[in-house]
């Protein structure tokens, strides 16, 4: 992970900054240049709702090397209350008790480290509520 690539995503990862299409209202997360629904080109910034529910999930037992010391960890597709969907880890939970439909809230956590000497990378994870 190199700093410029990380820094560019900070508003989305830290504050859930999204873009709402001014013509049809569709929210793009991350913000898009062209609306995926109406192909509109005008947007206003918006912040995603931090509450939502799990649509599907898995428990990763074998991760890429970068995540190997975190295993096992849960990853879910989450639908937020505003309808936006995203992928995030589900943390601080009993892995065996997770289920589809579980209500979750996004919190601020460390997501990964760029090795021992590189930058620390933060962002959103979900906790059960």
């Amino acid at each position: 992970m190199i700093s410029p690539r990380y820094a560019r995503e900070i508003p989305q990862r830290y504050q859930l900054v999204a873009a709402r299409c001014t013509s049809c209202g569709t929210i793009g997360f991350p913000p898009r240049r062209v609306c995926k629904h109406c192909r509109g080109r005008q947007f206003e910034p918006t912040k995603l709702d931090s509450d939502g529910k799990i649509l599907t999930f898995t428990i990763i037992r074998v991760g890429a090397d970068r995540f190997s010391k975190q295993t096992p960890y849960a990853v879910a597709v989450i639908e937020l209350n505003d309808g936006t969907r995203l992928t995030a880890q589900v943390t601080d939970c009993e892995l065996e008790s997770l289920e589809i439909g579980q209500k979750v809230r996004l919190v601020f956590r460390k997501i990964q480290e760029d090795g021992k000497a590189g930058i620390l990378c933060y962002g959103y994870k979900a906790i059960c509520v």
């Binding site: 690539r5 995503e9 990862r13 991350p30 898995t58 990763i60 074998v62 991760g63 890429a64 995540f67 975190q70 960890y73 990853v75 995203l86 992928t87 995030a88 880890q89 997501i111 990964q112 990378c121 962002g123 994870k125």
Partner: peptide, 12 residues
């Protein structure tokens, strides 16, 4: 940036 960043794998 929005899947792999969070630790997703293909089996996942």
């Amino acid at each position: 940036e929005y899947e792999v960043y969070h630790g997703v794998t293909f089996p996942g």
